[in-house]
Measured scan of single mutants.
Amino acid sequence: EQIEAIAKFDYMGRSPRELSFKKGASLLLYHRASEDWWEGRHNGVDGLIPHQYIVVQD
């Protein structure tokens, strides 16, 4: 089940696996990879999304 999230802040990925996005961006989350990271998608690209930078939608 995919979960929708909105970016709270701009984020610049620090490795090829991390996604970069702007504040207000819509993100799709697949699952929680760790306490700090989600596996997800932004603009058709899959990668890691930092939990602290997003708001998960109910």
Rank of each mutant, 00 (worst) to 15 (best):
I54W: 07
G24K: 07
D46H: 12
G40L: 00
F21G: 00
F21Y: 02
G40K: 00
K8F: 08
M12K: 05
F21Q: 01
A5M: 01
D10K: 08
A5Q: 01
L19K: 00
F9D: 15
F9N: 15
F21W: 00
G47R: 02
E39N: 11
V56D: 15
R32K: 15
A33I: 06
D46R: 15
E1G: 04
Q52G: 13
A5E: 02
V56M: 11
Q2Y: 15
D10C: 09
I49P: 01
Y30P: 01
L48Y: 07
E39W: 09
D10H: 09
K22L: 11
K22A: 11
W37I: 05
W38V: 01
F9P: 01
D10F: 03
E35A: 14
L19F: 02
A33T: 10
E4M: 12
L29M: 05
Q52H: 13
K22G: 10
G47L: 00
W38T: 01
R17Y: 12
P50V: 01
K23F: 05
V55N: 10
Q57P: 13
I3V: 05
D36A: 10
L48D: 03
R17A: 12
D58V: 06
V45L: 14
W38A: 01
F9H: 14
E4T: 07
Q57M: 13
N43V: 07
G24F: 06
A25V: 07
G44K: 06
G47E: 00
N43H: 13
L27F: 06
L27Y: 00
D58F: 15
R14G: 14
E39S: 09
L29T: 01
Y30M: 08
P16L: 11
G40A: 06
L48N: 03
Q2V: 15
W37N: 06
A33D: 05
G40C: 01
G44M: 08
D58P: 05
D10A: 12
L28M: 13
H42Y: 11
P50K: 14
I54Y: 03
L28Q: 14
L19E: 00
Y11K: 03
R14Y: 05
H42A: 12
G13H: 05
I49H: 01
P16W: 08
E4N: 15
A7I: 01
D36W: 09
Q57Y: 03
S15W: 04
Y53R: 07
E4W: 14
Q52S: 11
L29H: 02
I49T: 02
V55G: 07
F21N: 00
I6R: 08
F21H: 01
Q52F: 12
E18A: 05
G47S: 00
D10N: 14
V56R: 09
L29Y: 01
Q2S: 13
W37Q: 03
H51M: 06
V45D: 08
I6P: 02
F9W: 05
E4K: 09
V45M: 06
R17F: 15
S15G: 13
E18S: 09
G24Y: 05
F21L: 03
L19M: 05
K22I: 14
R41P: 00
S15C: 14
Y11D: 01
D10S: 10
I6N: 06
G13V: 02
L48C: 09
G24P: 01
Q2L: 13
N43F: 15
Y30R: 09
Q57K: 04
W37Y: 10
H51E: 07
E35F: 14
N43R: 11
E39Y: 03
R17E: 06
P50D: 03
V45F: 03
D36G: 11
L27D: 00
H51Q: 14
G47V: 02
S34C: 10
Q57C: 11
E39K: 14
M12E: 14
N43Y: 11
I54F: 09
A5K: 02
M12Q: 12
L29I: 15
H31N: 13
D58W: 04
D36V: 11
S20D: 06
I3Y: 04
Q52I: 10
G40F: 00
S15R: 08
L48A: 10
E18M: 03
D58G: 09
S20H: 05
F9L: 14
D46E: 05
G44S: 10
A5L: 02
K22Q: 15
Q2P: 06
W37T: 09
G24C: 04
E1Y: 12
Q57L: 07
G24M: 04
R32P: 06
R32Q: 10
K22D: 14
E39D: 08
A25I: 04
G24E: 08
L27T: 02
I6A: 05
I6G: 03
G44D: 11
Y30Q: 13
P50E: 02
W37D: 03
P16I: 06
D36K: 06
I54N: 02
Q57N: 09
V55R: 14
Q2E: 14
E4P: 03
K22H: 12
L28E: 13
V55W: 12
L28T: 13
L48T: 08
A7G: 11
D10W: 03
D10I: 02
G44E: 09
Q52N: 14
L29S: 01
Y11V: 05
Q2I: 06
A7S: 09
E35L: 07
E1T: 07
A25R: 05
F9C: 03
I6L: 06
Q57A: 10
Y11R: 05
Y30A: 10
A25Q: 11
V45S: 15
N43D: 15
K23L: 08
M12L: 11
S34N: 15
E4F: 14
I6M: 11
A7E: 00
G24T: 03
P50F: 04
Q52E: 13
S15A: 09
S15N: 13
L28N: 04
I6K: 15
V45P: 02
I3P: 04
N43E: 07
D10M: 06
S20V: 05
N43Q: 09
L48S: 12
I54T: 06
I6S: 10
E18T: 05
D36H: 04
R41I: 13
S26L: 15
G13P: 06
S34M: 06
R17D: 08
G13C: 11
L28H: 12
A5S: 09
A25D: 07
Y11C: 06
M12T: 08
V56W: 05
G44L: 11
L27A: 01
R41C: 14
I54H: 02
I54C: 10
Y30L: 13
R32F: 00
F9V: 14
S26C: 13
I49V: 10
F9M: 15
R41A: 07
E4S: 15
V56F: 12
E4H: 15
K23R: 09
S34L: 05
H42W: 07
E35M: 07
Q2W: 12
D46F: 03
A7W: 00
R41K: 06
G47T: 02
D36I: 10
K22W: 09
L29G: 00
L29W: 01
E4I: 12
G44Q: 10
I49W: 00
E1C: 06
E4V: 07
Y30W: 10
S34Q: 06
E1A: 12
G13A: 13
V56E: 15
G44N: 07
S34Y: 03
Q57T: 09
L19T: 02
L27G: 00
I49E: 00
D10E: 11
F21A: 00
E39G: 04
G40Q: 00
H42R: 05
K8Q: 10
Y53K: 14
Y53I: 07
Y11P: 00
A25F: 05
R32V: 04
G44Y: 04
M12S: 09
W38D: 00
A33L: 14
A33V: 07
K22N: 11
F9G: 11
I49Q: 01
W38Q: 01
M12Y: 05
L29R: 01
E39R: 10
K23C: 05
I6W: 04
W38P: 01
I6V: 13
E4L: 11
W37H: 09
R14V: 15
R14P: 04
